[in-house]
Amino acid sequence: MRAFIFPGQGSQAVGMGTELVQASAIARAVFEEVDEALGQHLSRIMAEGPADDLTLTENAQPAIMANAIAVLRVLEQEGGLKLVDKADFVAGHSLGEYSALCGAQAFDLATTARLLKLRGRAMQAAVPVGLGAMAALLGTDFDQAKAICAEAAQGEVCEAANDNGGGQVVISGHKDAVERAMALSKAQGVKRAVLLPVSAPFHCALMQPAADAMADALGKATVRSPLLPVYANVTAAPAADPDTIRELLVRQVTGTVRWRESVAAMWAAGVTEYVEFGAKVLGPMVKRIAPDATVTSVISMADIEALAASL
């Protein structure tokens, strides 16, 4: 069995998609459709930068999605393959869940782009700059990270935001509480604690205003049943009902990204092959969680051609 997987924020880079656009009119059409949906030249920022503009959450989220969907569409249309024939499940990390849903046709491309633009803006606006923080704890497990967060909170928000597997858990919350958690983690034997260069504390209770904004937007958006079940971040289980998908995407804004459990659940369901679209970020995570898995990252035209030949 095979899963198609889609990366999250942090996988953006100036120049992303440029080679693919030059090689494929299909990829170019994806970027043009996203530009039109957003009313901005996002593709120019992706190609030329500046990096600070691309890193802005409201730009990075639709950009990462557009790049991944462009790769998928080139594979489908030029490679003559259909996602529904070549994959059994789809999944994505944080914003990548939207890419997965778009790939599985639960959302159309323009809707996905607009939702992610709104999501990025709402997440950025939810917490004043400097009030929140995120940190990666390396050499721990989810239970230890949760216990450290609980001890460090002291009346503030400090929560385990991303369970990435392989001993990596990202925590999120008020800056002082996250810093207390980092100090505690070192005292409790965690190998490293690294403050992350992010603009807001994602996937914690401080994001509730953004969750409210997404509840409103998703309530108005057209959501279809996906062609394939989508593993949801907050449940680490497949979802296919449109109303359930809406609910889970709202919960995802403040909830933990349960990536380790998602990959483990897919593996337990019989998924041995994982194909990542648009980046090489999730593949290494998958290998740490399921060492015997076969992982392929598809970014360039050469990657697409090689994958098409092998499927």
Rank of each mutant, 00 (worst) to 15 (best):
residue 3 A to I: 04
residue 6 F to C: 01
residue 8 G to W: 01
residue 12 Q to C: 07
residue 16 M to T: 03
residue 19 E to A: 04
residue 29 A to S: 15
residue 29 A to W: 05
residue 33 E to P: 00
residue 39 G to P: 02
residue 41 H to K: 15
residue 44 R to M: 06
residue 44 R to L: 11
residue 44 R to W: 08
residue 52 D to H: 01
residue 53 D to M: 14
residue 55 T to L: 03
residue 59 N to C: 07
residue 61 Q to C: 10
residue 65 M to R: 08
residue 70 A to C: 03
residue 71 V to S: 07
residue 73 R to T: 01
residue 74 V to M: 04
residue 75 L to C: 06
residue 85 D to Q: 15
residue 87 A to H: 10
residue 98 Y to E: 04
residue 103 G to M: 07
residue 106 A to D: 06
residue 106 A to M: 11
residue 107 F to S: 06
residue 110 A to D: 04
residue 112 T to P: 08
residue 115 L to G: 04
residue 115 L to Q: 08
residue 118 L to C: 08
residue 121 R to W: 01
residue 122 A to L: 09
residue 122 A to F: 08
residue 126 A to P: 02
residue 129 V to T: 12
residue 134 M to P: 11
residue 139 G to I: 05
residue 147 A to L: 14
residue 148 I to A: 12
residue 152 A to D: 09
residue 159 E to L: 06
residue 166 G to C: 01
residue 168 Q to T: 10
residue 174 H to W: 08
residue 174 H to L: 09
residue 194 V to M: 10
residue 198 V to Y: 06
residue 199 S to L: 04
residue 200 A to H: 10
residue 202 F to H: 03
residue 204 C to S: 15
residue 205 A to T: 14
residue 205 A to Q: 14
residue 208 Q to H: 07
residue 208 Q to P: 01
residue 213 A to T: 02
residue 217 A to I: 00
residue 224 R to E: 09
residue 227 L to T: 09
residue 227 L to H: 02
residue 229 P to A: 14
residue 239 A to R: 09
residue 243 D to K: 13
residue 243 D to I: 06
residue 251 R to E: 15
residue 253 V to L: 09
residue 254 T to M: 14
residue 258 R to A: 10
residue 259 W to F: 15
residue 260 R to M: 13
residue 261 E to T: 07
residue 267 W to Q: 13
residue 273 E to K: 12
residue 274 Y to G: 13
residue 275 V to E: 07
residue 276 E to K: 11
residue 280 K to M: 01
residue 282 L to N: 04
residue 283 G to N: 14
residue 285 M to H: 09
residue 285 M to I: 14
residue 286 V to F: 04
residue 288 R to H: 12
residue 291 P to M: 06
residue 292 D to E: 15
residue 293 A to Q: 10
residue 295 V to E: 12
residue 295 V to K: 13
residue 295 V to C: 12
residue 296 T to R: 15
residue 298 V to G: 02
residue 304 I to P: 00
residue 305 E to W: 07
residue 307 L to E: 05
residue 308 A to W: 01
residue 310 S to T: 12
residue 311 L to W: 11
